[in-house]
Every structure is written in C-alpha cells, then in structure tokens.
Simulated scan of single mutants.
Amino acid sequence: MKVGIDQIGYFTPNKYVDMVDLAHARNQDPNKFLIGIGQKKMSVADPTQDAVSMGINATLRYIDKIDKSKVGLLIFGTESSVDQSKSGSLFVKSALGLDPTVRAFEVKEACFGLTAGLMIAQDFVRLHPDQTAIVIGSDIARYGVNTAGEVTQGAGSVSLLISSNPRLLELNEGHSAYSEDINDFWRPNYSKTAKVDGKYSTQVYLDFFKHTFSAYKEQKNLETKDFAAIVYHLPFTKMGLKANRLAVEGTDEETNARLMDSFTAAKELNANVGNIYTGSLYLSLLSLLENGRLKAGDLVGLFSYGSGAMAEFYSANVVEGYEKQLDKVGDKALLDNRSKLSVAEYEEIFSAGLEDPENNVELISDEETGRYYFAGVRNDIRQYQIK
C-alpha cells in the first residue's frame, strides 16, 4: 500500500516588506540580502494573524477537495504556540468542522515540527488506510527589528493531507535521523523573539545534512544521481544552496545541473515569503512541484532540520498527474495580492505583535473575505472569526 502526500495548501499574510527597502533602511548593500541571504520579500503578520489562523487558512486551500469524514488525525506543528496547554489543532478542528472523533494534538521541535507530524501521520494511515490525516506547520519567525536575523523573518503556514493512494507524492519507507543537544537557536518562554547563533546554526545544519544524506544513501543503496531533486528546510534560501552544493560535490555534469536547476525552482516561494519555521521545507516542496520539471516516478529527497537540534532525510516519488492537484494560480495570487509596507510600517506592526492582546478588545482584520483571523481575547479565551 502506498501512503503519501495527497494535498498541499499554503497561506501567508497579506503584507510584506521588500528586502531592498529593508537593506537601504539598515544602511546595507541590497545584494547582501538578495544574494548573500537569498531573500527578496518577507511576509509580515499583523496582530490579527497567528499560527492558528494561518493554519486554518492553509488547510482551507484544499478542504473542499477532500472527504472530511475520512479525516481521523490532525497534528499541528509549531514553535509559535498560542497557548501553553491547549493545542492549536483544536481551534483548527473546530473551524474546519471536523468530526469530534478526530484525534488532535500539537507537536514541537523547532522547525522539525511538521516533519515530526508527517511521520506520525504516515504511520497512522498505514494502520488506518481508510482514514486520512491533516498535518500543519504554522509559524511567525521573529528575531527583532534591526538584528542580525531580521532579514530571515517571515510568516506563513503549510498544510498537508496524508492518505493512502496519494495524488502528489508517495512516501518511501525508511529514513535517516540525527539529533544532538545543542544551542544554535532557541526561544525561552519569557521571550517573544528567538535567540540564535547564526554561524554556528548554519554549520550544524550543514553537518547534519551531510550525516543524514550519506546515511540515507547507504541505507537505501542509492547514489546522488538517482535523485531528480532534493528539497531543504529553508530559513533563508542561501542556507539550502550551501547544502545543495555539498550534495552535488563530485557528481557528473548532468546530475550537478539537474539538482542545481531543481533547487532554483524549489526556492522561489521561500525567497518571497521568508522564514516560516516548521513549514519552510514544505513550502519549498510546493515551489518545486509548481516550478520544477518533474515527471511521474521521479525520486525527490527531503532534508528536514530543527534547531536544538534534530534532522531527518527521507524521500518520496512523484505521482503521475500530480499537477492536477496544484493551485498554482491561487498560490501566485497570495503573493501578488499582498500590500507592500514601508519599513516604518513594518516596524510598527512588528512591535505591536510583541504585545499580549488586551482582554475583551475585538481586533479587526483587513484580510480578504473568506479568510480566518484572530479576533482578540474574550474572557481570556482566544477568538477566531472568518472575514
């Protein structure tokens, strides 16, 4: 029985800041951000968008295409949790109108959260082939205004439907995992912004990639040339490019060109959305599916990384007719319809996002009709509404 990704939906808020504008405001050469970091634009979440509302909106992108009665599991991966006890998945389940019998919970391991959920969901579907699982990664990446990590911020969510006989990707059995207790990136409970050792984190990311990629190829008796594409966790696109360069070292010219071309296709959405933590790998996967030159049966490698640190490499094969399940026009419209912020406007919204919502004050959203948003706190209970 084949199990894999049947649907994929993404969402990003309706505002962004341009990296050229940000570079000028920070007295930096724009090419430092555009080429050195590899980012073009950065989505900005105002106080009416949080991990939950974005997760709902990402899942709404495909919910009308599936049989909701078959959903038996909903996993919410995030490091931007809205409650210390209640799972974000329960808010999402309610908004989507899923059955009360659906198992729903939240998982956390930095940017690895969505992959962790995917692996749980895969096992669930193998045991319950007549049921499906929704797995969501949703985050707002905050490092701080005028900090070294500012250019690697962003906001967004990716939602996956895992099923038997999937229509996008068939997941292969086996994986290569590697973890260590380190401090390259973390966010204490008392802090609204992340702490990061950027250079150290990049080196650990690359070391973990080399370890898991090599181990996976050995385990599955594969060579680099067997992959049509490799997609990476992309907190910023230059980080993935460095890993991809390691992947193609020593390969033949055709393999080198193919994997570099596929990486170019896979980074486009991330370069225009920014860092979305748990969803970053899967936003890159969506970008590859929409912009790459894939055919049925092609082998795609996936490298997932979460600081702290946990990494995993696994693979999937492209399903014939996968293109029919994509909404490339709608995905492009999400980006094109965003409003451009001045740097001053972005800074004001960022500062507002660091404040806890005031109790019993209703928030008003400027999202388009049909989008969910965080409407404020009533009697200490978070409220979500549809525009």
Rank of each mutant, 00 (worst) to 15 (best):
G4Q: 10
I8V: 14
F11R: 00
T12D: 05
T12A: 12
L22W: 11
A23M: 13
A25Q: 06
A25I: 06
N27I: 07
I35Q: 13
G36M: 04
A45G: 01
S53H: 03
G55P: 07
T59V: 12
K70I: 01
L73F: 10
L74R: 05
I75C: 11
D99Y: 06
E106H: 09
K108Y: 03
A110R: 05
L114A: 06
P129L: 00
G144C: 10
G144D: 09
Q153W: 05
V158S: 08
S159T: 06
L161F: 04
S163R: 10
S163E: 12
L171C: 03
D181Q: 08
I182A: 14
N189Q: 11
T193V: 14
V196R: 07
V196I: 15
V204I: 13
Y205C: 04
T212L: 11
F213D: 03
S214H: 05
E218C: 03
Q219M: 13
T224H: 12
D226F: 00
L234G: 04
R258M: 10
S262I: 02
T264L: 11
E268W: 03
L269T: 00
Y277D: 09
L283T: 02
L285K: 00
L302V: 04
Y305R: 08
G308N: 01
A309L: 10
V319G: 02
G321I: 03
D327H: 08
V329M: 14
V329Q: 14
A333V: 11
S339R: 15
S339K: 15
S342A: 09
V343T: 09
E345C: 08
A352I: 10
E368T: 13
T369I: 14
T369V: 15
V377Q: 13
N379R: 12
D380T: 12
